[in-house]
């Protein structure tokens, strides 16, 4: 005996109704058979995607393979490449350590992020919290920021060389490099901070004003803490940019062949990328060092991107 369907009030018997907005796999196949051109386009789309994914995997997997596996230039025997020698505190002709270059990279990255962070965040606060978007000054700043973010790194390098190295007389030094990198990442930090500030609901501001807080207090106590994940993920993206930069640093922080730690801000120093740049034309033994530097660079960038994405995703969940 078939069971009677008991319908509650307002319910409709849906048995036997075929949803016309659903396509089964068979329907799709049928449609494609009738329109072979569409099917060809579909295949083309899939092919393009596969090629993109293959390109990333090729670069990543090959770099990891050559970076982690040491291949003896004479015998071809394989062993682990990232030896402790490569991370020795001091660089010598024997160990080819990348530690000094890593320290130079981090020094430049942290100091330029500090300066660019303050400028970028303050500028973003002005753009979002103070100025009206129709303001001429705001428009000019926006155009300037966009222009700055489009300038190629080699042009920044040449500018840094004329301005900081030459005109200010700082020579090839970490300081010249830091200020050049500051100019490069300022627009990135301003843009991400602007987005984060705009994502804070207006009710937060209104609530704060209603409780008697002034504008400054509202910004520093209410808005900035709410926007902090977005701001931090922007700063971390900036970090990734500094770590991966080569050309702007060759012309400002110098590219000494012996990769030692810079003795101070006024001393020249190779970063990891510049060290790799110097090693690119070497073969045999040094090629293994170059691949090791490449894989360390990629691992650094992967970690940085991962953290930025993790923090950025946290922001989305909040409101």
């Amino acid at each position: 005996m078939a069971r009677e369907l008991v319908l509650k009030e307002g319910e409709v018997d849906t048995r036997g109704i075929v949803p016309i907005n659903r396509q089964t796999f068979k329907d799709k196949l049928n449609a494609y058979l009738h329109k072979p051109f569409s099917f060809a386009v579909f295949l083309f789309i899939c092919l393009g995607t596969i090629l993109s994914a293959a390109a990333v995997m090729w670069v990543l997997i090959y770099t990891f393979y050559r970076g982690l596996v040491y291949i003896d230039p004479v015998s071809g025997a394989a062993s682990f490449n990232l030896t402790a020698d490569l991370f020795a505190w001091r660089w010598t002709l024997e160990n080819n350590s990348m530690m000094p270059a890593l320290i130079n990279t981090l020094t430049i990255a942290i100091l330029s992020l500090l300066i660019a962070g303050v400028i970028g965040i303050f500028a973003a606060i002005f753009m979002v919290e103070y100025a009206k978007s129709t303001n001429v000054f705001v428009k000019i700043v926006r155009v300037a920021a966009e222009t700055l973010s489009g300038i190629p790194s080699v042009v920044f390098g040449i500018f840094g060389m004329i301005f900081f190295v030459g005109l200010f007389g700082w020579g090839y030094s970490l300081l010249s490099g830091i200020l050049t990198m500051t100019l490069m990442i300022m627009p990135l930090i301003m843009r991400t901070t602007e987005e984060a500030l705009r994502a804070v609901p207006d009710s937060f501001r209104e609530g704060s004003y209603a409780l008697g807080a002034g504008k400054l207090r509202t910004i520093f106590v209410i808005i900035l803490p709410s926007a902090i994940p977005g701001i931090i993920s922007g700063v971390i993206l900036g970090l990734g940019r500094v770590v991966g930069e080569t050309m702007a640093l060759v012309f400002t922080a110098g590219s000494p062949m012996n990769a030692r730690t810079a003795s101070g801000l006024m001393d020249a120093g190779s970063t990891l990328t510049v060290y790799l740049y110097n090693l690119t034309n070497e073969s045999g033994e040094l090629a293994n060092v170059a691949w090791a530097v490449a894989v360390v660079l990629i691992i650094l960038v992967l970690i940085i991107n991962g953290i930025a994405e993790f923090i950025g995703n946290k922001l989305k969940k909040e409101y």
Binding site: V243, L297, V301, N305
Partner: peptide, 21 residues
């Protein structure tokens, strides 16, 4: 994330990869 990684790989690494591979 793969496309983000592609954007994050330093250009010197692309150059070195191009040169040797």
């Amino acid at each position: 994330p793969l496309t983000n990684i592609l954007a994050g790989i330093p250009s010197i690494v692309y150059g070195f990869f191009g040169l040797t591979v």
